[in-house]
């Protein structure tokens, strides 16, 4: 991990406004932001660890814990809401047995919500690993996640 972070640092200068892009790059490489990496970033940018931690916890994009193999994101935009997005979210929560922000114990799925992905015409939407599934309903959700224990996804 340390080598990876050091390598990332070579692509950045130590200016303060690089903090967010740096954290984004580290998360892209490691999948999340380990505590150690936050400390390294603080040293690299010559700022207190508390500031790095403050930024890391402020933005919803940053994860301080490792996530599952697949990330399921339920869109909670207005168009999705009026077309039943809240129920879709509840169904998925029930199916996977986790709340938004949590990961299934088998580390298969991490469930998240997003304010809006901007694909409102296809509402309600669910994104699995960056692939958008539009016009989902209770039945489609069941098909997508029913065999959650075995971790297979069907389209």
């Amino acid at each position: 991990m340390k080598e990876k972070i050091t390598e990332i640092f070579t692509k950045f200068t130590d200016e303060r406004d690089n903090l967010i892009p740096l954290l984004q790059k580290i998360q892209e490489e490691l999948g999340y932001l380990p505590e150690e990496s936050l400390k390294e970033v603080a040293k690299f940018l010559h700022i207190p660890e508390s500031e790095v931690f403050g930024v890391g916890t402020f933005y919803s994009q940053f994860k301080l814990k490792p996530g599952g193999k697949k990330t399921v994101v339920v869109c909670r935009g207005t168009a999705c809401h009026v077309k039943g997005g809240a129920r879709i979210q509840k169904d998925i929560e029930k199916m996977l047995g986790v709340a938004p922000g949590e990961t299934t114990p088998d580390m298969e799925y991490t469930l998240e919500t997003v304010a809006c992905i901007g694909a409102c015409a296809l509402a309600p939407n669910v994104v699995v690993d960056k692939e958008i599934f539009g016009q989902v309903n209770a039945r489609k959700i069941k098909e997508m996640f029913a065999p959650a224990e075995t971790g297979t996804t069907q389209d």
Binding site: R16, V55, F58
Partner: peptide, 25 residues
């Protein structure tokens, strides 16, 4: 080009500028 990091409040101009500066928005 600066990428946001998922905070609605950053659409507000002073928060957006704080975010560009690398701070909490």
């Amino acid at each position: 080009i600066k990428e946001g990091a998922g905070a609605f409040v950053c659409g507000e101009e002073t928060a957006l500028m704080a975010s560009i500066e690398g701070k909490r928005g």
